[in-house]
């Protein structure tokens, strides 16, 4: 017994050091897995609140860019509206506007209060949380394309796994076709992401547009991602192509969070099948 006490006495600093290192390692490994990151993240009220105050000051620097984005989006929506307003004048059939009754998604606005893009595992913090109905695994987009997936929520803040995260995997496809692939990031350039596992027979060309596939319950179909900038000529197994994002991930302001109203139902159905 005395030996043990002596041992602890002698190595108490080293043991304390080991203990703290194990705690740190525990946090590191928890942070890397999508579902377990409960402890150390910036979506708690303390860091979230401080980042919110900070972003109040810095948001003035991006007002020009933000205005431009809004104007672009307005033009896009106006164009969509004017397409619809052509009335063919056919009166012999009743028009049933099913979109009104079968709403599938709801959108809500949030502001990015902390944005990382220079690391390998990047996260974004936004100023909406459980109190505003945000849950985990909801899509985060802006008018130029996808940004990430909500991952961990606190009362008023949410941490978003950016698409610039090595763990990120998103279903994506060539625009207007049904050739699917998986969107990931290799951690190098924040303007470029990689689309892998796209079928070999798919007619890919440099400059083709890539959009979300709609095969997951998170992203709706057809949200823009980017254009193909490089095609691998070799015979690699995963057939990777580089994609230049439409979004400038280094300057993001306001975003939209998309909630899939049928997500619960689809999930349940898929779980029952297993």
């Amino acid at each position: 017994m005395q030996q043990i006490i002596y041992f602890f006495q002698k190595f108490k600093y080293f043991l304390f050091f080991l203990l703290l290192e194990f705690v740190a390692l525990f946090f590191i490994f928890n942070n890397l897995s999508f579902h377990k990151s409960k402890f150390i993240n910036s979506a708690n009220s303390l860091t979230g609140g401080l980042y919110y105050q900070y972003s109040k000051i810095t948001e003035y620097l991006n007002l020009k860019e933000e205005n431009k984005l809004l104007a672009e989006e307005n033009t896009k929506l106006k164009n969509l509206l004017s397409k619809r307003s052509v009335n063919p004048g056919i009166k012999d059939s009743t028009v049933l506007d099913t979109t009104r009754y079968y709403q599938k998604y709801t959108f809500s606005t949030a502001k990015i209060i902390n944005n990382n893009y220079a690391k390998d595992f990047n996260f974004i913090t936004i100023n909406r949380g459980e109190n505003q109905g945000i849950q985990k695994e909801m899509a985060v987009v802006n008018s130029r394309g996808i940004i990430g997936i909500t991952e961990h929520t606190s009362k008023d803040y949410t941490r978003v796994q950016s698409i610039l995260n090595k763990n990120s995997k998103i279903n994506a496809r060539l625009k207007n076709t049904n050739y699917f692939g998986t969107l990931g990031w290799n951690g190098k350039n924040y303007n470029t992401v990689q689309l892998s596992d796209i079928p070999r027979q798919a007619p890919i060309k440099i400059g083709d547009t890539i959009e979300t596939g709609g095969k997951s319950t998170i992203f709706p179909e057809g949200i823009l991602i980017g254009i193909i900038s490089k095609i691998n000529e070799g015979n690699s197994a995963d057939n990777k192509v580089d994609i230049t994002l439409f979004n400038d991930m280094s300057s993001l302001g306001y975003v939209k969070i998309i909630k899939n109203l049928y997500r619960q139902e689809i999930k349940q159905l898929e779980e029952n099948n297993e």
Binding site: E21, V23, A24, I28, N31, N41, L46, N116, R159
Partner: peptide
Amino acid sequence: FLFSTFLLGLGIDLFSDSGGIHAFSLLI
């Protein structure tokens, strides 16, 4: 000393969403 460096590292991890990397390396 060890404990306060651990807390400092963890504080920076909290803000920069890096798990416990800063705490781990600072403690070493």
